[in-house]
């Protein structure tokens, strides 16, 4: 579980996060949603430790990140997997080598066991074996995302962060990626945090949703509660399209 308590973050006097508190639960797909510029990316980067917060606590199962030294943060990060918006696969390595990379860096196991683990992770994300030897540039965007998920889970992380996992993907592939993240979260009991403004994802897998508006958390709930919310900004954001307005009517 990750707990964020009274977090403030400013850049050059501009306060981006204002007293944000939230709980991200283990074994659930936790989502941070909000308009562009609302502060959700800053919140996620603060939780990971890529931004130093001005005030507050970020507790990874009781371990307060802002109190940690860089050396300890590096150790903690070995428990973290991350899926980047652009996949961030290493160009110079093949698909298999990308997944094996964290294992080779930190796992004391033999090469055979590493290959076996990498195969297992790639099979978990339903990637065909013929793609294992290809370079990231030789596979599609959806496949790259799957490889990135496989790499993120290679070291059996306790915490999984996904930054806009569906950006640049078609609706069908987006759905596959969403389901994959959801399955992996439940299967391995991971604390997953997803930064998204894809409403299909929110409706599909949002088990714990945090809405950020102008740097403040103004709502927390799940994908069922969201149909009955009276938060105007949230309603304007989630049900912006005619389709989702109709969906809301049907659900109410």
């Amino acid at each position: 579980m990750i707990e964020v308590k009274n977090v403030d973050k400013s850049f050059d006097g501009n306060q981006v996060l204002k007293n944000v508190s939230a709980v991200f639960e283990t074994g659930k797909t936790n989502m941070i949603i909000g308009q562009s510029g609302s502060g959700k990316t800053v919140l996620m980067k603060s939780i990971i430790g890529l931004h130093r917060i001005d005030k507050g606590r970020i507790e990874y199962d009781g371990r307060n990140l802002p109190d940690m030294k860089m050396k300890d943060i590096r150790v903690l990060r070995r428990e973290v997997g991350m899926l980047f918006q652009g996949s961030a696969l290493f160009d110079s390595l093949t698909v298999l080598e990308n997944v094996m990379y964290p294992l080779e860096m930190f796992s004391p196991t033999s090469r055979e066991e590493m290959v076996e683990r990498a195969y297992f992770c790639l099979k978990q994300v339903n990637l065909e074996e013929k793609a294992f030897g290809l370079a990231p540039s030789e596979i599609s965007g959806g496949m790259q995302k799957r490889v990135a998920i496989a790499r993120a889970i290679a070291l059996q992380p306790t915490y999984l962060f996904c930054d806009e996992p569906n950006s640049g993907l078609d609706p069908v592939t987006s759905l596959i990626i969403d389901k994959l993240i959801h399955e992996i979260t439940h299967l391995f009991g991971i604390t997953t945090i997803i930064n998204s403004h894809d409403m299909n994802s929110v409706m599909e897998i949002g088990e714990n949703i945090i809405f950020i508006e102008k740097g403040e958390k103004t709502w927390q709930g799940n994908n069922k509660d969201i149909f009955h919310v009276h938060n105007e900004a949230l309603n304007d954001f989630v049900f912006a399209s005619e389709l989702f307005k109709q969906v809301k009517k049907v659900n109410q």
């Binding site: 150790v75 903690l76 990060r77 997997g81 961030a88 290493f90 964290p102």
Partner: peptide, 18 residues
């Protein structure tokens, strides 16, 4: 530089790599 802008360096950092 390309690794930086394509977040590959961030990916290394998140993995706990120097």
């Amino acid at each position: 530089g390309t690794m930086r802008i394509t977040e590959q360096i961030d990916a290394l950092e998140i993995m706990g790599v120097n």
